Computed example of a mutant assay.
Amino acid sequence: MNKDKLLVINPGSTSTKVAVFKDELLLWTGTLTHSTGALKEFNNIIEQFQFRKKTIERAVLNKGYALEEFKAVVARGGLLKPISGGTYIVNDAMLQDLRNGTYGEHACNLGALIAKEIAGPLGINAYIVDPVVVDELEPLARLSGIPEVPRRSIFHALNQKAMARRYCRENNQRYEDVNLLVVHLGGGISVGAHKKGRVIDVTNALDGEGPFSPERAGGIPVVELLKYFIEHGKDLDGIRKRLIGQGGLVAYLNTNDAREVEDMIEKGNGEAALVYEAMAYQIAKEIGAYAAVLSGKIDGIIVTGGLAFSSRLTTWIKERVDFIAPVVLYPGEDEMTALVEGVLRVFNGTEEALVY
């Protein structure tokens, strides 16, 4: 049986995306939903490992694919130590950090574990590509103002780098030769300064930097924020939820769905219009700040992610930043294709597989 296919695995909190590719060609993709009842059987994320693995294998076999057809398994990377961008072979050191939750627990930690468990008996490699912990910050970017709290690089690395490479392909350029600003607009918003193939500074939206987003508060006046939480008796978990899950559009308009916000605007809701434009305003300010990181020498500004489908939002952003560089829209994100592209760059010799 020919080993000519790639199995792609992308675990989320309550579902797992799975795909089968033959080189760049997508043969099948599906989302395997895991019920709340099923997941309640497990005390933590790592305990879900065998359950999710068997669910994936069953789905693949039901679609008519034999595991022996795969030449590699590639998964979304998890919470690991800071590493440079690229395609990594899953090894024991990586698996140990993921099992132990050394750098945090998240469903994406399961990806490499499952990929390796499937790949091992088949005698093939398992890989991850550009995980969220990609860290290519320059030393200047790490200082925060408080030595005990350095800035960290946590962002939509997989999609940002994939869209930067797409831009380069379409413009006959090499990623390693250009300077780009890449803006990911999703539940969280990140802006990255890509200098000749490396993300030398980026918004750590997870920890509260940058513009507010559909679910996140973004940068807040610090002293007033502290006073608010002290007055309301919030503990760390309560603070985190307020900033990361209950901020932004949720806080102002009780929804994280931009389509609902646009519907409010169409119906004459002035507050919705103000809040939505304020989000665009803050995004544009962040782009301007990161233009300074690259000394204004920028080949293009790429706007991607789910919110990039909103012409109203992207028009507001473009009106404020297109004097910096041409703005290109790549709405949505295709993480499965991005994962495959990373492995294929290793297979065709464009890149070398990295070791964790």
Rank of each mutant, 00 (worst) to 15 (best):
Ala93Arg: 11
Gly187Tyr: 00
Gly188Ser: 03
Gly186His: 00
Ala66Ile: 06
His156Thr: 02
Leu181Cys: 07
Ala157Cys: 12
Pro139Lys: 08
Tyr103Asp: 03
Leu98Lys: 14
Arg151Leu: 07
Ala126Gln: 07
Val199Thr: 09
Asp135Met: 06
His194Ser: 14
Phe70Ser: 04
Lys63Met: 14
Ala72Gln: 00
Gly86Arg: 01
Gly120Asp: 13
Ile128Gly: 05
Asn62Gly: 04
Gly111Leu: 01
Leu61Glu: 15
Tyr167Gly: 07
Gly186Ala: 00
Val129Thr: 11
Leu110Pro: 08
Arg76Cys: 10
Tyr167Cys: 06
Ile154Arg: 06
Glu138Trp: 13
Asn62Lys: 15
Pro150Glu: 10
Met163Pro: 01
Pro147Gly: 13
Gly86His: 01
Lys161Asn: 09
Asn172Ile: 00
Val134His: 12
Glu176Gly: 05
Glu69Arg: 14
Asn172Ala: 04
Gly145Asn: 13
Ser84Leu: 06
Ser153Tyr: 05
Val133Pro: 04
Gly145His: 12
Ala75Lys: 11
Glu105Lys: 04
His156Glu: 03
Arg169Asn: 08
Glu170Trp: 06
Ile83Lys: 03
Tyr88Asp: 00
Glu117Ile: 02
Pro150Gly: 12
His106Trp: 00
Leu181Thr: 06
Gln173Leu: 15
Leu137Asp: 01
Glu170Arg: 08
Glu117Val: 03
Gly64Trp: 13
Leu61Ile: 15
Tyr88Met: 07
Asp97Thr: 15
Gly120Trp: 08
Ile200Gly: 03
Val129Asn: 06
Tyr127Gln: 03
Leu122Met: 07
Arg174Asn: 10
Glu105Thr: 02
Gln96Pro: 07
Gly86Met: 06
His106Val: 02
Gly120Met: 11
Arg174Val: 00
Gly197Tyr: 09
Leu110Glu: 07
Gly145Phe: 14
Arg165Lys: 10
Ile200Ser: 02
Val133Leu: 11
Arg151Gln: 10
Arg58Ala: 14
Gln96Leu: 15
Gly192Lys: 02
Arg166Pro: 02
Glu136Leu: 07
Ala157Asn: 10
Thr102His: 02
Ala162Ser: 11
Arg152Gln: 08
Ile200Gln: 05
Pro139Arg: 08
Tyr65Glu: 13
Asp135Ser: 01
Gly187Ser: 01
Gly120Asn: 15
Asp97His: 11
Asn109Arg: 11
Asp135Gly: 05
Gly101Glu: 10
Glu105Ala: 00
Asn125Ala: 06
Val60Asn: 09
Lys161Gly: 04
Val149Ala: 13
Ile146Val: 15
Ala75Trp: 12
Arg151Trp: 12
Ile83His: 05
Glu57Leu: 14
Ile114Gly: 08
Ala75Arg: 09
Ala193Arg: 04
Ala119His: 12
Leu122Tyr: 08
Val199Met: 09
Gly123Thr: 10
Arg152Ala: 07
Val132Trp: 08
Asn171Ser: 15
Pro150Phe: 11
Ser153Gln: 04
Glu136Ala: 07
Arg76Ile: 13
Asn179Asp: 14
Ile128Tyr: 05
Glu176Leu: 05
Ser144Asn: 06
Glu170Thr: 01
Ala119Val: 08
Arg76Phe: 09
Ala59Cys: 08
Lys196Ala: 09
Glu57Phe: 10
Val74Tyr: 03
Glu57Cys: 13
Lys63Pro: 05
Arg174Leu: 09
Ala59Val: 10
Arg169Leu: 01
Pro121Ser: 15
Val129Ile: 09
Leu113Arg: 04
Pro82Glu: 00
Phe155His: 04
Val74Arg: 00
Lys195Pro: 07
Ile124Val: 14
Tyr103Ile: 03
Glu105Val: 05
Ala66Lys: 15
Ile189Asn: 01
Asn91Glu: 12
